[in-house]
Design a protein around this nucleic acid. Structure first.
Lengths: 222, 222
DNA sequence: CCAGCCATTATGTATATACATTATCGATAT
DNA sequence: ATATCGATAATGTATATACATAATGGCTGG
């Protein structure tokens, strides 16, 4: 399984950057040099460096050369997959229980509340609103035991998401309802998604801070 | 400012995907067709589609064609910039107060604790460890009033980061020390960074959940 | 001495071409 | 009928080439 040459070149330079041999601001060899070094055409070198530029590792300036970019401010990529997917991936039984379902604002908004369970323990309380103007078929969907988030994810492609993550003490009413300790801290994830100009859904999920956390893993650049 | 042709093609297809005209799983026109449609060489079309593949919007299969990818599971990009940068960007006065500084494990680890202030209010309590084997110059750095996170960010390029975000009730000792309410929920960010094989720093920051949250904004793909 | 111009150089885009790779589909032989 | 094989069609990689663009640095004329 021999890698294509442009990949080899790309990876070589990538490695030299990550190892610290090439530091931010350093010039990488001219395309002409690389071309002779690897005994290939300039287009091949060009493609390799183009990939590094797309990955944010390198910056090019005409006539001047190509340089290792300064590292960005810390910008991890946080995976917040669908709760159902995440729970089942962990090998636990997933369950969603719908608490309430009302149609608001003259039939244009579907409002839902429910609880996500993992292995029979309440994991999160969810309040969701769905824009029926944009997603009319949501009105007839069955959310009794399937989470609306999962249904939306596989049904409606989104184009923009905004997320907030905060921490709040669990209100007493919620703690009582789901059987959490009195002084539980909730990880509160609020998310709104759009499809083009129209908002699709807005959701607020309060997780039990003791059993849920958001994780991220990132290799340089972005 | 006329865009290069491959960019135009790339953007056209991008737009057709985001508008919903081309939905996940749909085939996009064959390179041969696009080539005639735009009156250009196949390499140009190929480069345009290659860019879409790099952006995760399209998947190619030999002999079969190119298809719009299924939308990824929700994977927002969360900006967690340096606290100092974030606070000053908000136009507030930033201050770091070092609480303790010890050298541990036979001189190989520098352990620090301190508090970040925004506009004279305590924003976060920080516990940090720095690997002196990897970053010996940290031993002589002055962290009395500059946050070690900021110093590291501008001094030491990293290649890998892992972050966890959780929620915990503030321990009474901490609440007393920084003057938070008894039942404050903390947003706890734990982060470890590497430079190649060596770990650089490990930090645990407990933010006041009432005044700090992590936000994310993302356009499709990734 | 300095401003302005020009040659140089490195990247940026585009083309035409070639051959490799791989999945599909139909034809052929068993 | 079915397994095999080969033609075909689509993408994947690589080349040589050409001209465009932009910044640099040196040359030249005032």
């Amino acid at each position: 399984m021999t890698l294509p040459l442009y990949q080899v070149i790309r990876d070589d330079i990538d490695r030299r950057i990550r190892s610290g041999e090439l530091r931010p601001g350093d010039r990488i060899p001219f395309e002409h040099d690389l071309m002779r070094q690897y005994g290939c055409a300039r287009m091949t070198v060009n493609k390799a460096i183009g990939a590094l530029v797309a990955d944010g590792l390198i910056e090019r300036r005409k006539k001047v050369g190509s340089f290792v970019r300064m590292p960005q401010l810390v910008t991890p990529i946080v995976d917040i997959p669908d709760i159902e997917v995440e729970v089942t991936a962990r090998g636990e039984a997933y369950l969603f229980k719908l608490l309430s379902r009302t149609v608001e604002e003259g039939g244009s908004v579907l409002a839902l509340t429910g609880i996500h369970y993992a292995a029979d323990r309440p994991l999160a309380y969810e309040e969701r609103r769905i824009n029926l103007m944009a997603i009319p078929e949501a009105e007839s969907a069955d959310f009794e035991t399937r989470s609306p988030g999962h249904w939306l994810l596989v049904t409606v492609p989104w184009t923009h998401v905004e997320t907030q993550i905060g921490a709040e003490p669990a209100p007493a009413s919620l703690s009582r309802r789901v059987g959490w300790d009195k002084d539980t801290a909730c990880l509160v994830v609020t998310r709104q998604t759009w499809r083009g100009e129209a908002w699709v859904t807005r959701v607020r999920q309060a997780f039990d801070g003791k059993i849920y956390r958001v994780t991220a893993s990132l290799d340089e650049a972005r």
